[in-house]
Write a protein that binds this DNA or RNA. Structure first.
Lengths: 115, 115
DNA sequence: CCGCATCCACCACGATACTG
DNA sequence: CAGTATCGTGGTGGATGCGG
């Protein structure tokens, strides 16, 4: 019954709400960046060091998207040399729980995804 | 602490496991089709009727992907006229719970995603 | 230190038309 | 009924180089 209700919740509006979320977090790096910022406030260069696989361009782009979506806050200190810090907003932190559920599923069922 | 552990779970392998899952379900229609097949076995045309927004091409392609990934089973009955039925596999059903968590988050926080 | 600009390959997605 | 074939478009993401 809970599952039947679940499918309805997903299909409710034709999946638009769920897709709107996926469109914003399902790119290659967004969730990884959010997870890296968990309970930390990091500078741009710190993020680069923590995520060496992310190109500079995509790190900038993804951070801008996350900022626009209200998941990450950007603080530019007017200093020399420049210093910019990124942190999760309340909304960003609340996203970690759903992401964690997906990550758990990936660990348990990832092997069942062929190829 | 659970959350701290959560971020580690997400970042564990550089996010590869989570991305592997997202790459497969984050397209425009996959999760919607999975939700539509919840506890039902449907024919191709039934799916088209339930999901009018999905073009015929994308329905075919997405079903093929879901089948390849082991989330959906395809049964072609050798009859005239042809009859093909789609249903969730055990793995496919297990995906509904994480999807539901995301859908709930979308309902609660979707309004906070600007623009 | 923190980016932005440019160029380019690739793929998701849609529209349309056709088939066993 | 259940697809396949073809074409076209937009967006993503990598490499590289420049700028304040």
């Amino acid at each position: 019954m809970a599952e039947q209700e679940g499918a309805c919740l997903i299909r409710g509006d034709g999946g638009a709400a769920l897709r709107a979320v996926l469109d914003r977090i399902a790119d290659k790096w967004a969730l990884l960046i959010v997870a890296t910022l968990d309970r930390r406030r990091l500078r741009f260069t710190d993020l680069r060091r923590e995520l060496p696989a992310v190109s500079q361009r995509m790190l900038t782009r993804t951070l801008r998207n996350l900022e626009r979506d209200g998941l990450v806050s950007r603080t530019a200190h007017r200093e020399v040399p420049p210093r910019v810090e990124y942190a999760l907003t309340a909304t960003g932190r609340s996203l970690l729980a759903p992401a964690l559920v997906l990550a758990r599923w990936a660990r348990e069922h990832g092997a069942e995804l062929e190829r």
